[in-house]
């Protein structure tokens, strides 16, 4: 089973709490602002993500999702 980690760019308010709690330093705040003027978090180093969901647990805006997806190799 593979996982897909997504951050809703428009829902994120760029508070940075997820960036601080990620154990693998995957996340960074974007330089491009979203439509509300916030600099949303994004996966700068997605390959290091271990899908531990710490960022999701910390996010006050439920802007982070982790879903199970078909393993590419199996597809």
């Amino acid at each position: 089973m593979a996982y897909l980690h997504t951050i809703d760019r428009e829902r994120c308010k760029g508070c940075g709490l997820c960036v601080a709690v990620c154990p693998k330093d995957v996340l960074e705040l974007d330089r491009e602002a979203n439509t509300k003027g916030y600099f949303p978090a994004h996966q700068a180093r997605p390959q290091d993500c271990i899908f531990c969901a710490m960022c999701g647990v910390m996010c006050p805006d439920v802007a982070i999702r982790i879903e199970e997806v078909q393993d590419e190799s199996a597809a």
Partner: peptide
Amino acid sequence: MAKGKTFKRP
């Protein structure tokens, strides 16, 4: 099997 957790809005 990749280890990990799902996470979504309740």
